[in-house]
Amino acid sequence: MKAKLVTFVILLIFWIIMSGMFDGFHLTLGVLCCLLVAFFSNHLLFTEAHPPSLRGCLGFVVYLPYLFWQIIIANIQVAFIVLHPRMLDKIDPHLFRFDTVLKRPLSKVALAQSITLTPGTITVDVHDEQFTVYALTKDAADALPGEMEQRVARALER
C-alpha cells in the first residue's frame, strides 16, 4: 500500500512538471492516469520486499555530492589521458572481477552505475555477488571496491 502511494505521488509530480497545465480538466486526467499506473505497476519502482523508506532517500541524497565529485575527477582524468601526446603509454586496459558485500538489488545497481561513471572503470557484468569490471589503468583497478562500496552500503543498505 505504501509503495503504491509513493509511486502515485512521484508520478503525479512528474505529470505536473511535464504538462504545465493547472486547470481542472488536466489535473483530473493526471490524477486518474497516475492512479491507474500506480495501481497496476507499482512493483516496477519499489518491490514488495523493500518498500520505500525515508532513511534510504536521505542516504541517497547524502551520497550524491560524493558521486558528483568523483564524476568530475573522472572527467579530468579522461581529459588528461586523451590530450596526452603519448596516450598509449598511459593506458593499460584489462578485465578483473571482485565480490561485493551488497545485498539489495537497488544498491547493486547504484554501485554498478557509480563504477561506470567514476575514474577509469566500466561495469561489464553483475552476476549475483560478482562484479566484472573493465579498468583503463592499473591504479583505477586497485581502487575498487574500496571506499565507494562502503559509501553505497552506508547510503542504501540498512
Partner: peptide
C-alpha cells in the same frame, strides 16, 4: 569526441564516450 577518435580499441572508447 577526441577520445572516441584517438583511443586504440572499442572498450577504451567507451570510457571516453560514457564519462565525458
Amino acid at each position: 569526441v577526441l577520445g572516441i577518435l584517438r583511443f586504440p580499441d572499442f572498450y577504451s572508447r567507451l570510457h571516453a564516450a560514457g564519462k565525458s
